[in-house]
Design a binder for these strands. Structure first.
Lengths: 213, 213, 213, 213
DNA sequence: CATGAATGAGCATTCATTCAT
DNA sequence: AATGAATGAATGCTCATTCAT
């Protein structure tokens, strides 16, 4: 017999696990509220009401409104980056054809993530309107993801299947811009068929250019 | 001589002209405030104070806060579209080389517009956070500008200097996405040299692709 | 004709005068509320309601709740000190008998001030419970008034009608303590007759001591 | 052997004794919190945290926040009155000189109590700001202590070493006021030397008066 | 027409208290 | 008996909007 509470595999006591679960639920509820009505139109009471809990309870889990949106965004970004980084890696590719296929897989993964729940891109789109700090964070996120893309490009240049004179950093921003463009287009018209054509168009621009032969 | 007030060439009386001027000033002041502090952090009093006028006066020119931001955005969009459409037209080009040069001109025009006053892209970025309607409007704007781009592409396809199998609509979104990406990059790091490289990278992707020859 | 608003003798425009009046009214209403229910039990809404005005209006005149109580106390202290300093001065007295009479006048003035409105001492008594800063301020006030008393004593020592070996500063605190004691007694039992006896007892202690001859 | 739990000399079971101890600890912790941060700024959680116990446990020992402060003040008052009444009694004195020495002892005892822990007078000072009832109680306390002093004076008058015409009740308030004044002065400047002079000044006023011979 | 005083809906946040475990 | 999670009443404060002057 010991006074120490039983812990699970992650070393968390029952209470800690419950607390983590509730935080998870609040993050999800807040995500839903923010995405549906927007950050400024959402009250803490809305988030609590969605979970059927008292609004005072919210403050047992998060400091304040700004705190929760920070966690919501962080969670969202992690989900996106996690889904992206999961099965792909720059080093996994040797030839242009492989790269093209990898691009397609990444594009499909992105389409799957965003397409599965349009609230995700919708919230990302609204995020810069929260405040200056969040706006900066979103710009930083765009830059960060461009670095991911740059890593892929860099690998291709080194292996010789991408142009040697590629301005890797700038091109990465351009490519990510195309992806962003397709996401915005999807928000207006979430037709899967159209998403597919957007992905194809992006790859066509990347590999074939737009000029006639 | 009549009792009718004198009117200028546009058929506006002196009073109407004065009113239009004041509306113009309010729009400019509101633009400045919204871009600097953000829509939600800006009060009507801030806008009025910037003009040295009473904040009650504001309501003689605009319905409410939502009304003014609508006009600010409209004005902003017009400035952008106006600057773009001014000297370029899809029909003015016959060859790929011409088109490439036209692209460069358009890119420079955009860089000039946005680069000259970063408050413009900053406000556009924050706009979707104002409310759902504004978010929709921004998505619509992205679509509208894509139609502009599509017109250029369409012209090129018809004249044969762009690929016959080009998915014009989807490609237009991709290209505009690249432009959007360069704008976002400029917001993080407004170095003109970098902007120039971003523009070049966009054109390189468009015309040369990223693949090695 | 001038654009300058008409001003009264104090150089205040009509609007400024009105504003000052309203501030005065708010201070009075707040004084009443704080004295009756206590600072912490009083809401801004209570103060506003007492004046029949919206509670938002309050914030046009005072920064916040702490601000108004600061002004209420300041006003209160000024009223007390003003009433005290009005007709008395240490230099106006030459003999012990004069001083004794002056003491009686000051005592009566104090009794008149506090006795006329028991909310004044009641609020002063509650003031240290507002917060640490106010508590310090009250202690400072006690010290300040002791300096007033000390000035009287000092004058008497110099003119020779008070003991040469008087510890002026310490004695001043003792005397003011007696006054404070009579105020506290008055709060419990505001019988004028009793106040009179308290004043007489204070003077008797001061001049005759308590010892039998 | 019976089912009755063992009891100590006071007739308390072990559990009752433990309960009393915990109450004692809570009172002490609450006293510390209230004196340091003030009643209104102190939360029940602060008190519990100071004892390292759950704040829910608090309510097993005291009804509510108002209840604990009542006990804290009661305890405080008892400590003061106890210390005062311990070794002194009106009847223990026969002559003015004895009385003067007794006064000095009482003064020293008070200075020792308050000076040893300034939180005591600080809490008493803040107490009237808790609510009306507590304010009344503090005034009552002042009156009660004046009755103590009055008993000493009464004894002196009866034995003839104090003035026969002394207004005992009023003079008692005046004397206690001086003591109160010295306590307030100590709160501002807790210099022991100064406290000593204040005590001496009080006795000088009492026995010698302030007038020159 | 300009003004700014007045307004109150609205919201984030705190914290004493309860009660299931 | 101890705990601390849950609760919601309570309140200070902001600011868009109105309207009398």
């Amino acid at each position: 017999m010991t006074a120490m509470p039983a812990t699970d595999r992650a070393g968390l006591s029952r209470a800690e696990r419950r607390k983590a679960e509730t935080r998870r639920e609040i993050i999800d509820a807040a995500f839903a509220c923010f995405a549906e009505r927007g950050y400024h139109a959402t009250g803490i009471a809305d988030i609590a009401a969605r979970l059927g809990m008292g609004h005072g309870t919210f403050y047992r889990y998060f400091e304040n409104k700004r705190d929760i949106v920070e966690h919501v965004i962080t969670d969202l970004v992690e989900r996106i980056l996690g889904a992206l980084g999961a099965e792909n890696a720059p080093e996994a590719v040797d030839t242009l054809e492989d790269y093209r296929q990898q691009s397609a897989r990444i594009g499909e993964a992105l389409a799957s993530i965003f397409g599965s729940d349009l609230r995700m891109p919708r919230l990302l789109l609204e995020a810069p309107g929260i405040d200056q700090a969040m706006s900066d964070r979103m710009l930083e996120l765009f830059d960060t993801t461009a670095q991911f893309t740059a890593a892929y490009l860099d690998h291709g240049v080194r292996l010789g299947y991408l142009r040697a004179d590629l301005d890797v950093r700038a091109t990465a921003h351009a490519i990510n811009g195309m992806i962003l463009g397709s996401v915005l287009a999807a928000l207006r018209d979430p037709d899967p068929e159209r998403q597919h054509r957007l992905g194809a168009a992006i790859r066509a621009v990347m590999y074939d250019g737009i000029a006639a032969r």
